[in-house]
């Protein structure tokens, strides 16, 4: 099967990144180590969350599509501080 990687998908999109000001943050990184499933690392459609060896989760929100899935899926832990980017920043859909 010809599977196109998520990085290549995101490459098609237009973004205005708010450098150094991510609009999402993990509240307590230690809590992620206790989370067995780490659903954010699979459900995020932009693969913003990466499960590292050793149980931690690293993040990069430059490709974020601002859908809100991570916040909702992390409800048990409630460990994601989620806001929209500053006005004008973030994903800029050409077609939507």
């Amino acid at each position: 099967m010809n599977m196109i990687k998520v990085e290549d998908k995101l490459f098609q999109n237009r973004y205005r990144v708010d450098e150094g000001k991510p609009h999402i943050a993990i509240k307590n990184p230690a809590l992620c180590r206790e989370c067995s499933d780490k659903p954010c690392t699979t459900a995020c459609p932009a693969a913003c969350y990466l499960a590292e060896d050793g149980g931690s989760v690293t993040t990069s929100f430059d490709g974020c599509l601002e859908c809100g899935t991570c916040r909702i899926i992390c409800q048990d832990m409630s460990n994601i501080d989620w806001s929209y980017p500053r006005g004008g920043y973030g994903i800029l859909y050409k077609f939507g």
Binding site: M1, N2, M3, I4, V6, K9, D37, P39, T42, A43, P45, A47, T69, I72, I73
Partner: peptide, 18 residues
């Protein structure tokens, strides 16, 4: 459903490719 993504651990982009 987001609850099903959570339960199954499938990724949305692999689903789209499939």
């Amino acid at each position: 459903l987001v609850s099903d993504f959570k339960k199954t651990g499938q990724t949305p982009y692999s689903l789209l490719e499939k």
